[in-house]
Design a protein around this nucleic acid. Structure first.
Length: 812
RNA sequence: GCCGAAGUGGCGGAACUGGUAGACGCGCUGGACUCAAAAUCCAGUGGGGCUUGGCCCCGUGCGGGUUCGAUUCCCGCCUUCGGCACCA
């Protein structure tokens, strides 16, 4: 018998698919939109920083199986591919290896594309894009200008996070525990002019419109909710004694206003220097501010709370008492107003601060029905609490107290209900070379002027010296920077910052629908046909950054009228990571395995199958060569068994046990892929079927069972399935409809009845289907091991589960 | 500290709605084929016990509970992993 030689057949079918455009899907004809038999399957686009490893391959297998399955179920399936090729990884790689980032990126893209093609994935290559190509980033710039027109992109001086290693600013989202998420360097604070997207305007939409999502992992939604950090509270205005100046604070506990015994400003608060100017405290306060500035975020958080008194006071609007103003770095300038009222009795942080500096502690909320807690102590939050020591608000339950105090503040003009967010505006400018230029011109007369649409794209200039030096490398391209102002024609300068790569990847999923459009980023009708993405697939590491930004972009595009949908991804699936030797695959750990040599020796199909067989896709998994061998064996067995069946000739679709097994397998695999999203168990089901065929040589249903096995395994092992299908005298399995199980054949005429006594299995007996309950009980009682236990005792109850089991409950 | 997910043989995992725990694969043991080996094929394989052609007991992280019946539901704990964390 001919041997299974994957290298030969895989090349053959890959060529056929490419030649026939097997996985190229056309856009709908204009006007014919409305057909809902479409599926948009999308995996997060890869960053071409090196080559593809097994972890990536596993991720793409998920979309692979789903798109084959749904196409064969009659849907138009869009599954594109592209490359997120701008950004630090390509630039850093270029710096290390020497050379231009473009060359590095394009070399990596070519290498990855070759790897992908060798995997034989069903991808529509006619829509491929790379975010560094001018044909793409022209429209990234165009979208930026639309944001700019609406005030959603703006420039301001801000205290920003600076990575001293990457020599660029970072978005808040890119700072983890005070460190750069890319390189791990401790982040520094700097004050710089930067570009921002006003994502905070969309904070509520980003929260509320989660309701429009069909199926997202709960934990991803929770992470986004935490990140946005909406909290309801009030802004309370405090007046500085002596100057009449006012300082607002944000609080979620306006009910504790009477307990505010001190007031704290963040060291960065703009009023600090003014408040202490010329006072005795000035030197100490300014020294404290300097010391805080030198402390890293991590240090600030780990030390005990400290601070310094300003000697000045504000008036507590509730009590009319003057309370001291302190400066302390446990108050963060980035959150709320950079100032807080200190309520030590009801806030742990304020309490430890008050303890250290001997500040007054006043209880103003106490559990109902109990006698007042001791003065000067911290009082835990409790379910049923009421206000005390709060003037006319005393005795009110806390929620009402909150409302009443806010109402009173509003009437007095001393505050109002507000909502605080943890979310900050998205800092999008980067002082690096390899990114999308910001299409803005600075003119001394006209100020900040957008580049007119018809002058897009603003091409990234070719420069030799692109190394990060703390200011934008683009600034050194003097000919490029110098430009005439589009508004007044005078001398002007180009913006030299580039965009964060997350901007590039915030709209690519729409460009795929209309990738060659050179008059607009995409056609709205086509975009509205394909989107939202029916199944988005990616790593949970993008739970906040990319997914939040893409949602934000989509909402803005919808508000502008560019698209008809509010959410880009209806269903999201986050897959687990692939480990090896107990650790996540990474170059630094040296445990990376690439598919290439495995493809060469065992074929792409073995790699494809194994990566899904290894375990549930949503869980982490461990690559084991021993397990891989089992799959290689299975493919050889499949090959042999099917070729034997092909020789057996067509004896028609008989019924009988093997035919029934085949239909059962169809039902299982269809349900697992289509409904349960379980991609490992279908492989086991097909293995069972193949084992069964091997055990029954000469069975009249052999050929049918073999065809079924081949057809069901096709989304996983596309090459061998196609080859075997051809040898079974058919053609083009990828276009063949997905098989359907014959319900009638699934009905069994007998089954194995499980018999329990007091819930423990004591026997099994084959019985005909459809027996009445009392007959089932009678059969159960006849079993010897059951009879032995019924001797001399009374059956109190008999539970019958039709088609499954009988449980006899006896005394005792 | 708060939130979330997970814990099943020697290993990866299966058991979907409370109804046969361990499908499928790896490994291991025995057998067939072979001069021999590899490959392949067949059979067995959770643990313990016994009067061993069979039967009994135990068994899904630990302790309770609900139920005729719990890997599955409820309460309490332990461990591991992930996220958030001075957010006023």
């Amino acid at each position: 018998m001919e041997r299974y030689e994957p290298a030969k057949i895989e090349r053959k079918w890959q060529e056929i698919w490419a030649r026939e455009g097997a996985f190229t899907v056309p856009n709908p004809e204009p006007g014919s939109v409305g057909d809902d038999r479409k599926t948009y399957v999308l995996e997060m686009l890869p960053y071409p920083s090196g080559e593809l490893h097994m972890g990536h391959v596993r991720n793409y297998m998920l979309g692979e199986v789903v798109s084959h399955f749904r196409r064969r179920r009659g849907e138009a399936v869009l599954r594109p591919m592209g490359f997120d090729s701008f950004g630090l990884p390509a630039e850093n790689a270029a710096i290390k290896e020497g050379g231009h980032p473009r060359d590095v990126a394009e070399r990596n893209i070519a290498a990855i594309r070759t790897q992908i093609e060798r995997m034989g994935w069903a991808i529509d290559w006619s829509r491929v894009l790379a975010t560094h190509e001018p044909e793409y980033y022209r429209w990234t710039q165009w979208l930026f200008l639309r944001f700019f027109e609406r005030g959603l992109a703006y420039r301001r001086e801000a205290a920003v996070k600076w990575c001293p290693n990457d020599q660029t600013v970072l978005a808040n989202e890119q700072v983890i525990d005070g460190r750069c998420e890319r390189c791990g360097a401790e982040v520094e604070a700097k004050s710089l002019e930067q570009w921002f997207f006003r994502i905070t305007d969309y904070a509520d939409a980003l929260l509320d419109e989660m309701a429009l999502l069909e199926s997202w992992p709960e934990r991803v939604l929770t992470m986004q909710r935490n990140w946005i950090g909406r909290s309801e509270g009030a802004e309370v205005v405090f007046e500085v004694e002596g100057s009449g100046e006012t300082i607002p604070v944000f609080t979620t506990r306006p009910d504790t206003l009477f307990g505010a015994t001190f007031f704290v400003l963040a060291p960065e608060h703009p009023l600090v220097s003014e408040l202490v100017r010329g006072t005795e405290a000035e030197r100490d306060v300014l020294a404290y501010v300097r010391r805080s500035a030198a402390r890293s975020a991590v240090e600030r958080e780990e030390k005990d709370k400290d601070g310094v008194s300003t000697g000045r006071h504000v008036v507590n609007p509730a009590t009319g008492e003057p309370i001291p103003i302190w400066v302390a770095d446990y108050v963060l300038m980035e959150y709320g107003t950079g100032a807080v009222m200190g309520v030590p009795a009801h806030d742990e942080r304020d309490f430890s601060f008050a303890e250290r500096y001997g500040l007054a502690v006043r209880t103003v909320v106490a559990p109902a029905g109990e006698k007042a807690p001791p003065e000067g102590a911290f009082v835990e939050h409790s379910a049923d609490e009421r206000l005390v020591n709060s003037g006319r608000f005393s005795e009110l339950p806390a929620p009402e107290g909150k409302r009443a105090i806010v109402e009173w503040l509003e009437a007095e003009g001393r505050g109002q209900a507000t909502i605080g967010y943890r979310l900050r505006d998205w800092l999008l400018s980067r002082q690096r070379y390899w990114g999308c230029p910001i299409p803005i011109i600075h003119c001394d007369r006209c100020g900040v002027v957008p580049v007119p649409d018809d002058q897009l794209p603003v091409l990234l200039p070719e420069i030799e010296e692109y190394l990060p030096k703390g200011r934008s490398p683009l600034a050194s391209a003097e000919d490029w920077v110098r430009v005439s102002c589009p508004s007044c024609g005078g001398e002007a300068r180009r913006e030299t910052d580039t965009m964060d790569t997350f901007v590039d990847s915030s709209w690519y999923f729409i460009r795929y629908t209309d990738p060659a459009n050179d008059g607009a980023p995409f056609d709205r009708e086509i975009a509205d046909y394909w989107l939202p993405v029916n199944q988005y697939i990616g790593g949970v590491e993008h739970a906040i950054l990319h997914l939040l930004y893409a949602r934000f972009f989509t909402k803005v595009m919808n508000d502008i009228g560019l698209v008809g949908f509010r959410e880009p991804f209806a269903r999201l699936f986050t897959q687990g990571m692939l480990h090896r030797h107990g650790a996540k695959m990474s170059k630094s750990k040296g445990n990376v395995i690439v598919p290439d040599e495995y493809i060469e020796r065992y074929g792409a199909d073995a790699v494809r199958l194994y990566l899904l067989f290894i375990g549930p896709v949503e869980q982490d998994a461990e690559w084991q060569d021993a397990g891989f061998e089992g799959i290689v064996r299975f493919l050889h067995r499949l090959w042999r068994v099917v070729l034997e069946a092909a020789e057996a000739g067509d004896e028609g679709t008989a019924d009988g046990p093997l035919a029934r097994k085949a239909h059962e397998t169809i039902a299982r695999v269809t349900d697992d892929i289509g409904r349960r999203f379980a991609l490992n168990t279908p492989i086991a089901a097909v293995m069972e079927l193949v084992n069964e065929i091997g055990r029954r040589p000469g069975d009249p249903a052999m050929r049918f069972a073999a065809e079924t096995a081949v057809s069901l395994i096709q989304p996983y092992a596309a090459h061998i399935a196609e080859e075997l299908w051809e040898r079974l005298e058919h053609s083009r399995l990828w276009e063949e409809p997905w098989p359907e199980a014959d319900e009638a054949l699934l009905e069994r005429d007998s089954f194995v009845l499980v018999v329990q006594v007091n819930g423990k299995v004591r026997g099994r007996v084959e019985v005909p289907a459809g027996l009445p309950e009392d007959e089932l009980v009678a059969r159960a009682k006849e079993l010897p091991r059951v009879r032995a236990r019924l001797d001399g005792v009374e059956i109190r109850k008999a539970i019958v589960v039709p088609g499954k089991l009988v449980n006899l409950v006896v005394q005792g």
